[in-house]
């Protein structure tokens, strides 16, 4: 019996094969047609500009002079980047900013998600409140925080003086040392709501039965969090990690409005450097070289995170 069945199956399948492949063909055509509008837009507005940027990074070009005046300059732009404090400092600042902002925002987002998931009566109101900063205009946020961080008589420094007796509080955005941390604080505050909301969705998709089983096995709060919540949230963490890194590398609005990269180069970040080189200094080739480096870094980060995530998921499956 066991030997006959496969043969039978093969015999049944064979005459259907041409039918299937034509069906598959039809399916493919339909699928390609469906994704065509999206792909066309992607090609025209994303892929083509990326290729053009890559090409421009080997040239010198003031876009005001028209496309005829693109001058090939080899790897000069890349060589000059390494000696340019605007670029090197912006790389250091962006990396520091990302290293601090992404994990802290995620940790605080998870903390608030845990609170909002279980511990709150009428949870809709605090959920809306915590999300509001995320949808507020960065310019409005900048204006509010500039006043809060005002160096001499701003509310934060008055609080530090009155409550803790700190006579020489930081001058925040006016100080080379404190401007970047101040920007980080604003970004973290702005991003908590979004992270909390995504984590909340993740938490609510964890089956209650897993916690019940863990509780029967004698697991306490911490063990349940460590062994059930965190592993099952790992796809959410992965998503927030990747999008967080990408957003951090693109940070621009707050810098442009509040500090314009200063004092000194203390808050010059990579996206602001690119913008300034292109549209203030009219050096499109140079700006493109920076953009290419940024693209490579973001792709590398994403790839590494993706590999780690894959390994984790495999580990969970095993």
């Amino acid at each position: 019996m066991a030997t006959i069945r496969p043969n039978l199956r093969r015999a049944e399948i064979k005459p259907e094969q041409p039918k299937r492949s034509s069906l598959r063909m039809k399916d493919n055509v339909a699928a390609y047609l469906l994704i065509f509008p999206n792909m066309a837009v992607f090609f025209l507005w994303v892929l083509l500009p990326v290729i053009f940027t890559f090409f421009l990074s080997f040239t010198e070009w003031n876009f005001l002079e028209g496309i005829d005046n693109v001058r090939f300059s080899g790897v000069d732009n890349y060589r000059n980047l390494m000696d340019d404090p605007w670029f090197t400092d912006s790389m250091i600042n962006t990396t520091l900013y990302t290293i601090v902002v992404v994990p802290v925002t995620m940790a605080l987002g998870l903390f608030f998600a845990l609170l909002l998931d279980k511990q709150v009566y009428l949870p809709v109101i605090p959920r809306i409140l915590i999300f509001i900063p995320y949808i507020t205009s960065p310019v409005a946020i900048a204006a509010i925080w500039m006043t809060l961080f005002s160096p001499n008589w701003g509310p934060i420094n008055v609080f530090l003086f009155d409550t803790f007796g700190i006579e020489d509080p930081p001058t925040w955005f006016a100080s080379s040392t404190w401007a970047l941390p101040a920007l980080m604080i604003v970004t973290i505050w702005k991003g908590i709501g979004y992270n909390a909301l995504i984590y909340l969705a993740g938490l609510q998709s964890i089956p209650e039965s897993l916690y019940e089983v863990a509780a029967i096995d004698g697991a306490g709060w911490w063990t349940r969090f460590k062994s059930v919540t965190l592993p099952l949230l790992s796809p959410t963490t992965f998503f927030l990690g990747i999008t967080g890194v990408m957003t951090s590398f693109r940070v621009f609005e707050l810098v442009a409005v509040i500090t314009q990269g200063g004092p000194g180069t203390s808050t010059t970040v990579i996206a602001y450097s690119i913008y300034r080189a292109g549209f203030s200094f009219y050096r499109m080739g140079y700006a493109s070289a920076m953009a290419v480096i940024m693209l490579i870094i973001v792709i590398t980060f994403t790839y590494v995170q993706w590999r780690i995530q894959q390994r984790q998921t495999r580990f969970m499956r095993d």
């Binding site: 500039m146 006043t147 961080f149 005002s150 160096p151 001499n152 955005f173």
Partner: peptide, 9 residues
């Protein structure tokens, strides 16, 4: 001070 004027716009 410059910083004060900038911060408070």
């Amino acid at each position: 001070p410059y910083a004060e004027a900038r911060a408070a716009q």
